[in-house]
Simulated scan of single mutants.
Amino acid sequence: MKTKFTLTSNRAFYTFLGLTAIVSLLLSALFVGLRANVIVEDLVKETNETQAQLAVNNLTQYLESRKQILSDLSLHPIIVNGAMGTGLSAAKLRDFMRSFQIIGKEEKLMVINILGDVVYANFDSHEVLDQKPKWLDKVINAELGSAIDLAQVGNLHYFTIAVPIYYNGFAEGALIGEFSTSLESLLSSSSSTSFHSIGLKGRWINFSNVRKVETYFSVSSLDVGSTDLVLDYRVDKSQVTDEVKMFVWDLIGAIAFGLFLSFGLLYLFGKQLLLNPFKKLEESRTTLKRSEERFKLAIFGSDDGLWDWDLERNAVFYSDRFKSLLGFSQETQALFSAHISSLFDRVHPADLPI
């Protein structure tokens, strides 16, 4: 047995709510998906450009301050005389350097004369000399104003800075400092090992903290102050993709929650303010229709002629039986207008009200 489907006010209301919610969610997801990739990539780029600038500022401040301290120290008479090997210079140099600190820390320092001999060192000088750095002779001979190198110790990397020692404008040796703060700790506040990749290039340095550089894309390449170093700040491509997906799903979730809340309120208040009054109106119409049908049945079943005068609209209802009693046939009843004058015109003048 087939049942006929009828769209009642309840079903119409719920169908409207459901379809509106689905269409709103789909459209929101579509537009969000189209724009999210660009928005998130721009956001990631701007954020990481700021982090790259922070990393460069940290490195610049660290390297330039220590290079300047070494440059000033190389001009001190005790350092110059120690490099030249005059008089009691070696003993004075040891006494002077024994308690010397650079920005509150005792760092590894070494003085080399013009012949390449170590005049003073507070650490094992072979750590530097055995590596035979290419910059050493150039600094000793003042072919370079300074040199910055990076040495690996275990899993960490440490800076070495060298400056020439002058006397009356002539090169007399070099002052070398190995610093105890690692590059990784300097960059820790502006990068994470899983999300970022740092590249540092210079005349004597070619450093990268990851092997597969192709899985990253460069966000910013910046000069590290007045040094010859350039920092390349990179971001993991897969991380950016994941960030986009997370952003899209979070946004869709927020939109879905907002729509659910809105339609929930619409369901509650709409049912009270729209659906219930509409249902009452529908029930009233049904009741009125049934009453009219019963009235028509009563009229057709009666042999009396009925008429009803609506004083507000000044309109009169005349039943077919009433018209036939006045001599109107089925074909001519349409000529009997629905006005009170149609009745008064057919009443004897003596029966009319005075």
Rank of each mutant, 00 (worst) to 15 (best):
143 E>H: 10
49 E>K: 09
85 G>N: 02
131 Q>V: 11
52 A>K: 00
107 E>P: 03
61 Q>K: 06
67 K>W: 14
55 A>N: 02
98 R>K: 14
47 T>V: 10
150 L>S: 02
77 P>E: 07
112 I>A: 03
49 E>L: 09
120 Y>D: 01
92 K>N: 14
98 R>Y: 12
138 K>L: 11
62 Y>T: 00
119 V>D: 11
67 K>C: 07
122 N>D: 09
47 T>P: 05
91 A>R: 13
87 G>L: 15
134 K>A: 14
106 E>W: 05
88 L>Q: 15
91 A>K: 12
142 A>Q: 03
106 E>M: 14
143 E>K: 11
51 Q>E: 07
102 I>D: 05
109 L>P: 02
55 A>L: 01
143 E>Q: 06
124 D>K: 07
129 L>Q: 12
54 L>V: 04
70 L>N: 01
48 N>H: 15
82 G>F: 08
60 T>I: 01
120 Y>F: 08
111 V>M: 02
89 S>M: 08
84 M>I: 15
60 T>E: 05
98 R>V: 12
120 Y>C: 05
91 A>G: 09
117 D>S: 11
86 T>L: 15
65 S>M: 07
124 D>M: 00
110 M>L: 10
107 E>M: 04
75 L>I: 13
143 E>N: 09
124 D>F: 04
90 A>G: 12
48 N>S: 06
146 S>Y: 15
86 T>Q: 13
85 G>L: 12
100 F>V: 08
59 L>H: 02
66 R>C: 10
136 L>Y: 08
